[in-house]
């Protein structure tokens, strides 16, 4: 069985790994133990600033530091970053296009026991609608490391969506290639394309195997960058497989599914089925139980894939 590491863990490690760059500054809002920015803090205490439980202020402080040449990583739970501090991100970071990277952990219902108040299921939709913002949702630890590196190298605001739950490591560091805005084709297929993001990527891989047993050939794509989205890959997959399934641990309104549908409806309409949260809040529970309860499993992807293929022959 594959090793499991939470993307927040990989985020903290990556900050510490790339932290020698003196321009990098890390801010947190009293959650450094949970967001794992603590790992950076231990190595570079002079460039870590706790801003207390005041997320709005933290985002605008980050903007001020970025205006002075700093590459600022501001971290908190995604629900507070994307929603409590949404307007600060819009007006003080994205409008002036400042070099602030938002490390938003505890995204999705896999937060588990803390329940709905702490489970961001709308963050992708909100963040991707703001001009100048780049949105990345890495699938595993290897991808997260590269996403942090790409965020450092990218000049402008980035929203990094990270999870609390330990998830399977699906990539091999030795032959992994990450490019901002370019989806990764994990396996080729001809009957349907499954486009997944975040922890749903490993579910998509599992679904691909289950479909293969049923004689269905599914292409699997990891869409780690939701904005700017890889239009070319989406359009080509629609042309080559004729049906699309999207999978995200996020509401189906405005997230990955919507972003894919926007591209296809304008360019090459094919059936699109979405796996995601159906306009409802999460709740407390074990992460795995919640993922089942909310229809975010490999089985759900298989079902939707079959439905999408059936729609091809209407």
């Amino acid at each position: 069985m594959a090793q499991k590491i939470a993307t927040r863990e990989a985020y903290g490690n990556a900050l510490a790994e790339f932290g020698a760059d003196e321009r990098i500054v890390v801010l947190d809002a009293d959650l450094s133990k949970s967001t794992k920015t603590e790992t950076f803090k231990k190595k570079y205490p002079e460039r870590f600033f706790n801003m207390g439980i005041a997320e709005g202020n933290m985002m605008a402080v980050a903007a001020g530091m970025a205006s002075c040449g700093k590459i600022v990583f501001a971290s908190t739970f995604s629900v507070f970053a994307s929603q409590r501090a949404c307007e600060q991100i819009r007006n003080s970071i994205c409008y002036p296009n400042l070099n602030v990277k938002i490390g938003a952990s505890h995204a999705g219902i896999s937060v588990g026991e803390d329940g709905a108040s702490h489970q961001a299921i709308e963050d992708i939709a909100i963040m991707r609608s703001i001009p100048n913002m780049t949105v990345i949702c890495p699938a595993d630890a290897v991808s997260t490391r590269h996403a942090v590196k790409a965020a450092i190298e990218h000049d402008g605001p980035v929203f990094l969506r990270l999870g609390r739950l330990a998830v399977p490591v699906i990539y091999d560091e030795s032959n992994f290639h990450f490019e901002l805005g370019k989806g990764i084709t994990i396996s080729e297929g001809k009957d349907v394309t499954i486009i997944a993001t975040g922890l749903m990527v490993s579910m998509a891989i599992e679904a691909g195997k289950m479909l293969e047993e049923k004689g269905i050939s599914a292409r699997i794509i990891d869409m780690h960058t939701i904005k700017p989205i890889d239009k070319e890959l989406i359009i080509n997959s629609a042309k080559e497989t004729g049906a699309i399934v999207t999978a995200e641990e996020h509401t189906v309104m405005g997230g990955l599914g919507s972003a894919v549908a926007e591209v296809l409806s304008e360019n090459y309409p094919v059936p699109v089925k979405m796996v995601g949260i159906m306009d409802e809040f999460g709740k407390s529970g074990k992460p795995d139980a919640l993922l089942k309860m909310y229809g975010l499993t490999a089985e759900n992807i298989v079902e939707k894939a079959q439905a999408a293929i059936a729609m091809k022959n209407r």
Binding site: A63, A66, K70
Partner: peptide
């Protein structure tokens, strides 16, 4: 600094001062 939404500019100024100290 781009401003207009009240309450945010003073935070940005804090960030600039913090960067200056650093």
């Amino acid at each position: 600094m781009s401003t207009g939404s009240l309450g945010q500019g003073i935070s940005a100024a804090v960030g600039m001062a913090l960067a200056g100290k650093l």
